[in-house]
Design a protein around this nucleic acid. Sequence first.
DNA 1: ACGACAGGTGAAACCGATTTCACAGACATC
DNA 2: GATGTCTGTGAAATCGGTTTCACCTGTCGT
Lengths: 313, 313
Amino acid sequence: MATNEKPKPTYSEIAEVAGVSEATVSRVLNGDERVHPDRVKAVKKAVEKLGYRRNRIAAALASGKSRLIAIVIEDDLGLFSDPFWASVSSGVSKVLMENELQTLLMVTASNQVDGPVAHYLEGGEVDGAIFFQMHKDALVKKLAKQGLPVVIAGSPHKDAGLAYVDTDNYGGGKQATQHLFNVGCKRVAAITGDTGATAGRLRLDGFVSACKLNKYEVPNSYIAHGDYSYESGRDQMTKLLAMKERPDGVFVANDLMAVGAIKAIRDAGFNCPEDIKIVGFDDSMLAQTSRPELTSVRQDIEKLGETVANLMI
Amino acid sequence: MATNEKPKPTYSEIAEVAGVSEATVSRVLNGDERVHPDRVKAVKKAVEKLGYRRNRIAAALASGKSRLIAIVIEDDLGLFSDPFWASVSSGVSKVLMENELQTLLMVTASNQVDGPVAHYLEGGEVDGAIFFQMHKDALVKKLAKQGLPVVIAGSPHKDAGLAYVDTDNYGGGKQATQHLFNVGCKRVAAITGDTGATAGRLRLDGFVSACKLNKYEVPNSYIAHGDYSYESGRDQMTKLLAMKERPDGVFVANDLMAVGAIKAIRDAGFNCPEDIKIVGFDDSMLAQTSRPELTSVRQDIEKLGETVANLMI
DNA sequence: ACGACAGGTGAAACCGATTTCACAGACATC
DNA sequence: GATGTCTGTGAAATCGGTTTCACCTGTCGT
């Protein structure tokens, strides 16, 4: 180990071997058109021969571009355990990698977002940031204003000119709800996500729209408010079940809550889907694997991640 | 924007304000003991005043330490969709962040691991690498030999002196199997994971051990070999069900397969757990949310991630 | 033919820290 | 009082690329 020196070729060596200057080496490696073909060939040959590998750190320092994209996730509710975001991350990472970009994963408690994460992001050592279902608009806007490319996966609270990618929340909610009517439900209810956020509101809007379309008037009490967590799904469903006129079909704004809702139904001694039908949102692995199988609106998750990444690029 | 210049303080400015040299600034910021308290105070004050933020990239270049740890995941089977790994990642990221380290997420198809990923890792721009259930021992060993700190989450094929962290596969397998005997199963079978890998083998060993303990001789045909995927769980279970003497209890080496197995059982017209009992391994969100609830051996997943990260540090 | 112009090229500055090295003083030793 | 540590400190080199800028060609226009 000690005796075996590592070559670790640098520009200067390549330049020497190829008989050109370091500047030219840089030009070739960065695809500058204006270099004479002969030299391009010479440099490439030297690179090949020496097994050169560019040092991204040095490059980053000199050029001011780190080629690093951060993924920021709030993990209060075990959010990242939701296969949905994991899949998105996966898609993002793949696409970025194909584009010679690195993915920085920042999982953090939401109350700490303003601390280390903000600190880091503002430091300008990242070329872009992708936020997952981020509720702290302030930070995002601030970063965007600083000129940092920002993409939000999942809708931001208000469309403040921020780039975002999301699944079709409105259409999905509508479609899911329509499904309930199609299978004959008469008393349709909903368990919403965080309606303070765009995504949650749109899903609810879709629900309401479908109800109108079916000339069905939703009682206010039939709209229960959850927060996307398993527990909230369970609890809200329990509340719905306790009503005199129980709903016979429920649109739940994400799969995690839907599974919680099913749990509540079973615990209360009812059957799903015989007594009460549940339709979720996401069609995650969760929906596919839970028993009884959960009907869910499909979302092309990895594709979403890929779109996010491409948008970033 | 154009008119508003960003200060972006550097060492030289701090040095000037504090009336010391850049070298001293560096020493203070890196906690060098040998600096006179007065200057330390002066520097800290200047840092505060200017709102200085260290440029990690420059630091990385100069010191040769990138403070970046890579997480490498093969994503052939939608592995990352398995909440298990997502949770581990989450734990890793949190701990690393607390230690001022960044997490680089590299999701890649396993046939591409040797390409870009290996290339990158060998480039030495990462201070360490964490592999998730990596089967390519060759690459891992090579990196380790190059002096790169490597930790494997999940057991490596052979214990080649590589650091690894894993759940108690043997104990878990044993415990899970024992549970089947405890609830009265007479014909106990297993669906294994990849027994070519240590984790899979150990879980099976635990199973066998528990069988011996209960003086139960497992028929060879009762040991079905899966590959941790949902499909394989389903298919292997179907195989088991087709036997003349059906098992009445099955230990399945992970939850994903277990859910697949339950699916197969239901599809075949049986009930779970009435007719056949299934016990999984991981106790992931999957186990908690699927219906009927899947009995599973608990694994403290985030803790695992944290352990991995700490080991790396 | 001669200045203008454009394409190529290399020397050197630069990015922002870290780290080596040499050198003052303060203090102890003989 | 001369010599010898030990501390604390700053100037300068360094990390490995990128980028500016000046300059040197050869070609074109007239």
